[in-house]
């Protein structure tokens, strides 16, 4: 297996336990605290769903970029990567509107342990989104010149993982009320 991809798999493996720690802790508290339903009802399901949609779509463009790169089409791969980065940016914009509304309504990170988990889990995930976007900018710049095309797949793998984490965060933080 190419070294880069192998390393990304190991990175994902070690990220699984980091998110596993936060989400495991959240899950245990959530199951023991039925009263958190009164807090989670104030999260905005439609904003969460919109963000899920955005991330799923950006994952699609990431995998299409990989497809283009494996055909050797660096230009198209770069374009699709920029579309993915745009998806990440849109995700962050939605997130910032969402958080602004919640903080204005008085739900801050220190209001209650539910909100602490809400901001912490989504915040760590958000940092991964930002990191993925930065990595993809470098990869896209190279890919546009036809260089380092194997990195398109590696960046995409990481992005899919970020998407996966969100797929679980969405029901945990938004849907379960």
């Amino acid at each position: 297996m190419p070294t880069g991809r192998l390393a990304v798999w190991w990175l994902i493996a070690s990220e699984i336990v980091i998110f596993g720690g936060v989400l495991g802790a959240y899950l245990m508290h959530r199951l023991g605290h039925p009263e958190w339903a009164n807090q989670s009802m104030h999260t905005s399901t439609w904003k969460g769903a919109l963000n899920t949609f955005i991330l799923l779509t950006s994952s699609l463009s990431a995998v299409l970029a990989h497809n283009a790169a494996s055909r050797g089409d660096g230009k198209r791969a770069a374009k699709l990567l920029w579309a993915t980065i745009g998806g990440g940016a849109a995700f962050l914009v939605v997130k910032s509107f969402e958080w602004t509304a919640e903080i204005k309504a008085g739900y801050t990170i220190s209001s209650n342990t539910f909100w602490s988990f809400y901001y912490t889990a989504a915040g760590i995930h958000g940092l991964h989104v930002i990191a993925g976007m930065i990595v993809m900018m470098f990869v896209a710049a190279d890919a546009a010149k036809g260089k380092e095309l194997q990195r398109v797949e590696n960046a995409g793998l990481y992005w899919h993982f970020v998407d996966l984490v969100w797929i679980f965060l969405f029901p945990l933080l938004y849907i379960a009320k």
């Binding site: 493996a13 070690s14 699984i16 336990v17 596993g20 720690g21 495991g24 802790a25 899950l27 245990m28 508290h29 199951l31 023991g32």
Partner: peptide, 19 residues
Amino acid sequence: TMLALMVVMVGGVGPDVLR
């Protein structure tokens, strides 16, 4: 394996934190 480890962790911690 990583997922299984998280299950082990939750299984070991749950009796103290969940309950």
